[in-house]
């Protein structure tokens, strides 16, 4: 018996899927942006060996990278309310994904900072610039240029990992699919659809990152 792939079913569920897609995009964009900030700050703290904070970030990175993301999400959503730090489903998701992506971005950006030559720092300081201005005007733009490919990988993972948030009932793309499947058992149509939607999102993200990289590289192309 041939399976009848039901396109009409997908179209009928289009609005729900689009709403899930919008939630996925929202939570991912926010988490990616915040995790880049966490990464840059954390890497700067690590590279410049800021006492206490540097050790704190090292511990944070190890902790996140060596525990499962799903456990982290449950800890934030179910665990934190016990100590009065309960967050909504949405913000629990943002915090979990930011913490996860941020840990990887600390390492990505640390590599970027280490690739900036010592001479750049000496040149900036010898002009009488404050260390923080060196960081902002020289080290971050030069370091990002090196770190962007790795950060893109992390960002793609953050986007894909947003599907774990269905486990705490966040209405993103995977959650919508699971909900529909539970009612209609149209598993193939549903999961094929969200697969294609995720693929489209990742390709779009890669395209945007390549554009950014191109822009940051432009001064170097003639070198």
């Amino acid at each position: 018996m041939a399976y009848q792939f039901d396109f009409a079913y997908i179209i009928a569920n289009g609005p729900a899927l689009l709403q899930g897609l919008a939630m996925t995009v929202l939570v991912s964009v926010l988490s990616i942006a915040l995790s880049v900030i966490v990464g840059v700050v954390g890497a700067a703290v690590r590279v410049f060996r800021v006492p206490v904070l540097s050790q704190a970030f090292a511990f944070y990175v190890d902790f996140i990278r060596n525990t499962p993301l799903l456990a982290q999400i449950f800890f934030i959503f179910y665990g934190l309310p016990s100590i009065g730090m309960g967050l909504s489903i949405f913000w629990s998701g943002v915090v979990a994904l930011t913490a996860w992506g941020g840990a990887y971005n600390v390492e990505n950006m640390r590599g970027g900072f280490l690739a900036v030559s010592k001479g750049m720092r000496e040149a900036a300081l010898s002009l009488g610039l404050r260390p923080l201005l060196y960081l902002w005007l020289v080290a971050i733009p030069l370091g990002l240029r090196v770190a962007i490919p790795a950060m893109l990988n992390t960002s793609v993972s953050v986007l894909k990992n947003s599907s774990y948030l269905q486990a705490i009932g966040f209405g993103e793309l995977t959650f919508v699919a699971m909900e529909r499947v539970a009612m209609d058992f149209r598993t193939l149509e549903m999961f094929a659809s969200i697969g294609l939607l995720y693929l489209g999102l990742v390709l779009l993200l890669s395209f945007l990152a390549r554009r950014l990289e191109h822009r940051l590289q432009s001064p170097f192309r003639t070198a």
Partner: peptide
């Protein structure tokens, strides 16, 4: 930092900011 604003330095490898 304040003194360096009065003392210019030129390096062997120029160390211009490439970006």
């Amino acid at each position: 930092r304040l003194l360096r604003q009065r003392i210019g330095m030129v390096f062997q490898d120029y160390s211009l900011f490439p970006h």
